[in-house]
């Protein structure tokens, strides 16, 4: 039996909604099949007021063993570093976060806000938000770069806006069943099993990417979304086209560009007008190219690919 506690800071509850929709395994499977005891969760917990405070204090003191501390949302530090804008159970949430993180065997950050600050930390960041161990790409965050939980691991980051339900439940199962040591983390402390490949991996538009056929409107079935509509699939690490959403689809499959929400810079360009859903270019060449590709190679490849493009690649081949 592994005790799990889930708290929310500066959050929209999107990751909770995602978690509750998990299927493989489901939130219920965590309890019935994998021995996870949910001590408290904002949408599931029964305790209120003094009872909740008592529960949290018992976790901090060790009277109740805290195996997994899950945090969703940013750590809010405003105003002026006090955290008073986000009070919870009688004190600033950030104070609970510090003490519970120190008491837990494992700390798991769910969603962009908890991992690197996400949308609340976008400039000018009025809520003085931070992720648990990162602020955007900057290592440190609220807990500091040196933080390690009792089990000796840094915060396990599961980013996304929201994180896919199965990324959440599968990592929680791995941790709860004693396989946390098998989790290889990347430089941003994301489990490589999910975040080594690209969003583009498995995208149904890869043939259009290869032959440089561009989609020019949302929802268009033909064409790649990278060239004009700002898709970040080739630069974003996520399994969105390997582990499908609702088991059936993904943004790119539905004709919407990937916004790169598993990367620390999300939302990109601080949401400046004209930067969302529009590929940013300099002299006609995308500012950001697929990872590892240089400008000269990209231009040469494009010329060759377009010249080789078969007629079918330029048509809508999906028959309803």
């Amino acid at each position: 039996m592994a005790n799990l506690l889930w708290l929310q800071g500066g959050a929209c509850s999107g990751n909770t909604m995602s978690f509750l929709n998990a299927e493989e395994p489901s939130a219920c499977d965590l309890v019935t099949d994998f021995g996870i005891n949910v001590l408290w969760h904002p949408s599931l917990g029964m305790e209120l007021g003094d009872n909740l405070q008592q529960l949290l204090r018992k976790c901090i003191s060790g009277e109740i063993k805290l195996d997994i501390f899950v945090f969703e949302g940013t750590v809010v530090n405003a105003p002026n570093g006090t955290g008073e804008w986000n009070r919870f159970a009688g004190r600033p949430m950030r104070d609970w976060v510090r003490e519970l993180s120190d008491a837990a065997d494992f700390v798991v950050a769910i969603g962009d806000c908890a991992t690197w600050g996400g949308i609340p930390a976008t400039a000018p960041n009025p809520s003085e938000s931070q992720g648990l161990q990162f602020l955007k790409r900057g290592h440190g965050g609220y807990l500091g770069a040196e933080f390690k939980s009792k089990a000796g691991l840094p915060v396990i980051n599961i980013p996304g806006c929201p994180a896919h339900p199965d990324w959440v439940t599968q990592i929680l199962v791995a941790v709860a069943t004693g396989r946390a040591g098998d989790l290889a983390l990347d430089e941003f402390q994301r489990p490589k099993t999910f975040f080594q490949s690209f969003t583009q991996t498995g995208c149904t538009r890869n043939m259009h990417f290869a032959y440089k056929v561009s989609a020019t409107e949302f929802g268009q079935r033909k064409g790649c979304l990278f060239y004009d509509l700002g898709c970040r699939g080739p630069m974003t690490h996520s399994p969105c086209n390997r582990i499908l959403w609702n088991r059936v689809s993904s943004k790119t499959r539905a004709g919407m560009p990937c916004m790169g929400c598993t990367e620390p810079e999300f939302p990109f360009f601080d949401l400046a007008p004209g930067t969302v859903f529009k590929t940013q270019t300099v002299m006609g060449v995308p500012k950001e190219l697929p990872e590892g590709v240089d400008k000269t190679g990209y231009i040469k490849l494009t010329g060759a690919a377009k010249a080789a493009a078969p007629a079918w690649a330029e048509q809508d081949i999906f028959v309803v």
Partner: peptide
Amino acid sequence: ETCMYYVVH
């Protein structure tokens, strides 16, 4: 010929 909006065929 090399532009993204050009449909070759």
